[in-house]
Deep mutational scan, measured.
Amino acid sequence: QEEEKEIKRLAKKFNASEEEARRAWKKAGGDPETAEKILKKKG
């Protein structure tokens, strides 16, 4: 599933848990760029 792959990639890229990545993904409405910004800010 595309979403799961994206979440795993985000978690790995930002050294975050999949739970954090999933939360960022949901907050971003499934937009990878926005999710990255959220995780970057958090990191």
Rank of each mutant, 00 (worst) to 15 (best):
A24L: 02
E36S: 08
E4P: 03
T34W: 11
E19S: 07
K8D: 05
K27P: 01
A21G: 02
R23P: 01
G30V: 01
K42R: 13
E20C: 12
E18T: 08
E36Y: 05
G29Y: 07
E2P: 08
E6M: 13
A16V: 15
E36M: 08
R22V: 04
K40I: 10
K42P: 08
A16D: 02
L39S: 00
K40M: 15
G43K: 13
N15F: 07
E33F: 12
K5G: 08
A16R: 09
I38P: 00
R22Q: 05
K12L: 13
A21M: 03
E6R: 06
N15E: 05
F14I: 02
R9I: 06
K27S: 11
K40D: 10
K12G: 05
K8Y: 08
G43S: 12
S17F: 03
K5I: 12
K12M: 12
K12Y: 09
E18G: 03
E6S: 07
F14D: 00
R22P: 00
A28K: 00
A11Q: 08
A28I: 01
R23I: 12
R22H: 05
G29V: 05
K40H: 12
E20D: 10
A21W: 02
E3S: 09
E33R: 11
E2A: 10
E19R: 07
K27Y: 10
E36F: 04
L10I: 06
E20I: 05
W25N: 02
A11W: 03
W25G: 01
G30A: 06
W25C: 04
E6K: 06
A16H: 04
A11P: 00
N15P: 01
K37P: 01
D31P: 01
R22Y: 09
N15M: 08
E4L: 09
P32W: 13
E33M: 12
G29K: 11
K12S: 09
E19K: 06
A35T: 05
S17G: 04
R22I: 05
L10W: 02
K40F: 12
S17V: 03
E33L: 13
L10R: 01
G29P: 02
Q1F: 14
E36I: 07
K13Q: 08
A24Y: 02
E4S: 07
E20K: 04
E4N: 08
K8N: 07
I38S: 03
G29W: 05
K37Y: 09
E18I: 15
K27G: 07
G30N: 04
E20H: 04
P32V: 14
R9P: 01
L10T: 01
L10E: 00
W25R: 02
A24I: 04
W25Q: 02
R23K: 11
K40G: 12
T34D: 05
A24V: 05
E33A: 13
K40L: 14
I38H: 04
E18N: 06
W25K: 01
G30P: 01
K42A: 13
G43V: 13
L10P: 01
G30Q: 04
K12W: 08
K8H: 08
W25F: 11
E4K: 06
E3C: 12
K27Q: 15
E36H: 05
K37I: 09
T34F: 10
G43R: 15
Q1Y: 12
W25H: 03
L39M: 09
E19D: 12
A11T: 04
E3G: 07
E33S: 10
K13H: 05
E3Q: 09
L39P: 00
K40E: 14
A11M: 15
K5H: 10
E3H: 10
S17W: 02
E19Y: 08
A11S: 06
K42Y: 14
G29D: 08
R22L: 09
G43M: 15
E4R: 07
E6L: 12
R23A: 15
K5C: 13
I7K: 01
L10C: 01
I7F: 03
K26L: 15
G43D: 10
G29N: 11
G29I: 04
K5S: 11
T34L: 15
E2T: 10
T34R: 13
R22E: 06
P32Y: 09
E3V: 10
K41A: 15
F14P: 00
E2I: 09
I38L: 11
K12P: 00
R23E: 15
E19C: 10
K13F: 06
A11N: 00
K5E: 13
A35M: 06
S17H: 04
K13M: 13
E20A: 08
E3P: 06
L39R: 01
K13D: 04
A21T: 07
I38W: 07
A28V: 02
D31H: 09
K37L: 10
E4M: 10
S17T: 14
A16C: 15
E2G: 09
E18A: 06
K41E: 14
K26R: 14
A28D: 01
Q1V: 12
E2H: 10
K40N: 12
R22W: 10
N15R: 09
W25A: 01
A35I: 06
D31G: 01
K13P: 00
Q1D: 14
G43I: 14
A16W: 03
R9N: 06
Q1E: 12
K26I: 14
A35R: 01
P32N: 05
L10Y: 02
T34H: 08
E33N: 09
E19N: 06
K12T: 08
E18W: 10
I7A: 02
A35L: 04
K13G: 02
K42E: 14
A35V: 07
E19G: 05
T34E: 14
I38A: 03
W25E: 01
Q1R: 10
R23C: 15
K27D: 15
R23H: 12
A16Q: 06
F14A: 03
G30M: 04
R23F: 11
P32M: 12
K12C: 14
F14S: 02
A11D: 00
R9M: 07
K27R: 07
E3W: 10
E4D: 11
E4I: 09
E36W: 04
K37F: 08
E19M: 07
N15V: 04
A28Y: 01
K8I: 10
P32L: 14
K37A: 14
K41T: 12
E2C: 12
Q1W: 13
K42H: 12
E2L: 10
N15T: 05
K8E: 08
E33Q: 11
A24E: 01
I38D: 03
A35K: 00
E6Q: 11
I7R: 01
A21K: 00
E19A: 10
A16N: 03
E3M: 11
E19T: 06
L10S: 00
A16T: 15
G43Y: 15
E36P: 01
L10V: 02
E18M: 14
S17E: 03
E33K: 12
E2W: 15
E18L: 15
G43A: 12
K13W: 06
E19F: 07
E2S: 11
K26F: 14
L39K: 00
Q1A: 13
I38T: 03
W25L: 15
S17Y: 03
P32S: 11
A35C: 08
N15I: 03
A35W: 02
E36G: 09
G43C: 15
R22N: 03
P32H: 07
K12E: 08
L39V: 02
K37D: 09
E2R: 09
K41Y: 15
K42Q: 14
E36K: 05
A16M: 11
A11F: 02
E6W: 15
N15K: 10
K12F: 09
E18P: 07
E6V: 09
K12R: 12
E3T: 10
W25M: 10
A28Q: 00
E3K: 06
G30T: 02
K5P: 06
L39F: 03
T34V: 14
E4H: 07
E20V: 07
P32R: 14
D31A: 04
K42L: 15
K42D: 12
T34G: 10
K13N: 04
L39I: 04
I38K: 02
G29R: 10
W25T: 02
L39Y: 01
E20M: 06
A21N: 00
A21P: 00
D31Q: 05
E2V: 09
A11G: 03
K27N: 10
K37Q: 11
K13T: 06
G29F: 08
R23T: 10
Q1H: 11
K12Q: 11
E4V: 07
A16E: 04
G43W: 15
K12A: 13
E33W: 11
E20Q: 07
K26Y: 14
N15C: 14
E3D: 11
A24C: 03
K40S: 14
K5F: 13
T34Q: 14
P32T: 11
G30Y: 04
A28W: 01
R9Q: 06
A24G: 00
A24M: 02
L39Q: 00
G29H: 10
A28S: 09
R9G: 03
I38M: 07
K5M: 14
S17P: 06
W25Y: 11
R23D: 15
L10A: 01
A28H: 01
A24H: 02
K37W: 09
A16K: 08
K41I: 10
K26A: 13
K26V: 13
Q1L: 13
F14V: 03
